[in-house]
Design a protein around this nucleic acid. Sequence first.
DNA 1: GTCTATAGTAGGATAGAC
DNA 2: GTCTATCCTACTATAGAC
Lengths: 208, 208
Amino acid sequence: MVNQDSILCSLVADNLVSDPAGARGRLLREAARLFREKGYERTTVRDLAAAVGIQSGSLFHHFRTKEEILKAVMVETIRLNTALMQAAVDAAGSHRDKLQALIRAELESINGQTGEAMAVLVFEWRSLSEDSQAYVLELRDIYEQLWLDVLEALRGEGVLAADPFVVRRMLTGALSWTVTWYRPDGGLTLDDLTEQVVAMMGMTNSGA
Amino acid sequence: MVNQDSILCSLVADNLVSDPAGARGRLLREAARLFREKGYERTTVRDLAAAVGIQSGSLFHHFRTKEEILKAVMVETIRLNTALMQAAVDAAGSHRDKLQALIRAELESINGQTGEAMAVLVFEWRSLSEDSQAYVLELRDIYEQLWLDVLEALRGEGVLAADPFVVRRMLTGALSWTVTWYRPDGGLTLDDLTEQVVAMMGMTNSGA
DNA sequence: GTCTATAGTAGGATAGAC
DNA sequence: GTCTATCCTACTATAGAC
């Protein structure tokens, strides 16, 4: 498995994701936290500014509108997670292992560091302008294609009984929803959870 | 299977759910539609009033606050769907059939008549005041217990490999998420979908 | 790049006539 | 039970000094 930090570093170097230590990166992290906690509409620019210790007017030096902040949170989150997913797929051998790696990686992205931003992606979608939605959807297609390639391969091998599109969508819902109930300190690790999902899909470790 | 209309009628008679033909019922249906479409925060009281053909001030003769409307949408939706679920469970024979009936009924509630209100329940949760959240949670517990009883029975029979709580939560996510992608005219019926879910759970029709 | 001050607007809710 | 009129508050965004 490739180091996650090195993936982040190269994205930062390419200017695709903000440096988490920089001013912009810090604001986006706080924004994700607040949007997740209170919702985008209920979070004011004053809240956002206060969270990083500046006045609300100063925000507009970095972003032209409040919505641009929401868009940036979503765009950077997808970019980062697509890169992480790609690495997870590349590192796994069999298609079955690739699927397990994807599930594990998505659970990590939803319940780990980027969890707040991933939740924003799910719950604040409608607050994004139509233009921004179209742009984010393009990025999301790349991400989704990673899943479909693996699921279709499994389907071809006869391991998967259901339609890849339906399976992916069910998985999207099931995995996203963990954000509402999963707690790392609840005696269930993300590895446990991954195993339960794989088990629920009738794909337990028979081929390994 | 008990007639769904008769269940609705008895709830209306007991004053647990508003008559859909009455002024209050019509408003709640329009409210569900708007909250689902634009989100609760972006829906103004002027929008709500216009949707039923009155002025915004007149709304406050029926509800004291805008949030009370959101609460009413959620409360009545849970009451109705709990009753429908209960009927579905009672009508089925084996535990496996009860589970299938629950899945079918939840897909119906999410993608049928009450779909908009169910989506509101999922996506607008944070817009509810803490007091209202507590009240709705109590109702939700009754609903969830229906599922857990069936899943635990299946677990006891050795048919279910995973933890009932985890399974229910995965199902909640997977089924709720269908609201974002399922379209009845897409060549996939709700019965098809139910079967795929049951199949994905490794519980295909072996015991029937 | 951050501050202060404020323009401009829109929303929730109320009052009182009919 | 609905209308009109409007209060009051809170918000996004801007302007210009430092």
